[in-house]
């Protein structure tokens, strides 16, 4: 019975995972979290971090991997598994954060080169302050706008689908999305100028 249940949850190949990342596929994120997080947590624990550190490092690492996949900085190669890459990114991130033993960090960076990436182009880390600021501005939008934008840009739902959910014509939904983006743009870039 167990065997059957396990079998029903198919193993995802690296290709599946990579494409899943590009599509913001929810199941892919869950799969990676379940599979890779325990390894990262163990690693961070071993390097002296706590549960919350592990969680932060993993999420930042996954976001960085996702961004790199989208920008083309990270590409699938025969000798690198996606999960290996992610674990390395997280480990590197943790060492960078703690600035522990700089020689060890250098060593880690060399390892990353072996994995097939120069550290300088490896990753644009999620800048927490920037994203926090964006979040604050984003929340100033109406809930409806937030939902429309999230559905379209993150969940990658079609305009047709979104229109159906909100009981609108396709054209109306498209216009509404445009207006929401204009509003967000105005709020966000105006606030940036105040800095």
């Amino acid at each position: 019975m167990l065997r059957v249940l396990q079998k029903s949850k198919k193993e995802l190949t690296d290709q599946d995972l990579f494409e899943g990342l590009l599509q913001n596929d929810q199941a892919t994120f869950e799969y990676l979290y379940k599979k890779v997080y325990p390894m990262v947590r163990q690693q961070v624990h071993q390097l002296g971090g706590q549960e919350e550190d592990a969680r932060d490092v993993f999420q930042e690492g996954l976001i960085a991997t996702w961004q790199n996949a989208k920008s083309g900085k990270f590409q699938l190669q025969n000798n690198t598994k996606l999960s290996t890459y992610l674990v390395q990114v997280c480990k590197w991130r943790w060492l960078e954060k703690t600035k522990k033993a700089s020689s060890r960090l250098e060593h880690q960076m060399e390892e990353m080169v072996e994995v097939g990436e120069a550290p300088s182009v490896l990753t644009r880390w999620l800048e927490k302050e920037d994203q926090q600021k964006f979040q604050t501005q984003f929340e100033k939008l109406s809930e409806r706008c937030q939902e429309i934008l999230q559905r379209f840009y993150f969940a990658k739902e079609s305009i047709h689908h979104i229109a159906k959910v909100f009981g609108l014509e396709d054209k109306t939904a498209k216009n509404e999305k445009y207006r929401c983006m204009q509003r967000l743009k105005k709020i966000y870039f105006n606030s940036s100028m105040d800095r």
């Binding site: 913001n24 929810q26 994120f29 869950e30 979290y33 379940k34 997080y37 969680r55 999420q59 996954l62 976001i63 996702w66 961004q67 999620l126 994203q131 964006f134 979040q135 984003f138 934008l149 999230q150 840009y153 993150f154 969940a155 967000l184 966000y188």
Partner: peptide
């Protein structure tokens, strides 16, 4: 990109809360 990242951040938080 920021909207997507925001979405992903939320998604990861909710996965964490559910799973761990």
């Amino acid at each position: 990109n920021a909207i997507e990242t925001e979405g992903l951040k939320n998604k990861l938080n909710s996965i964490y809360d559910h799973q761990f």
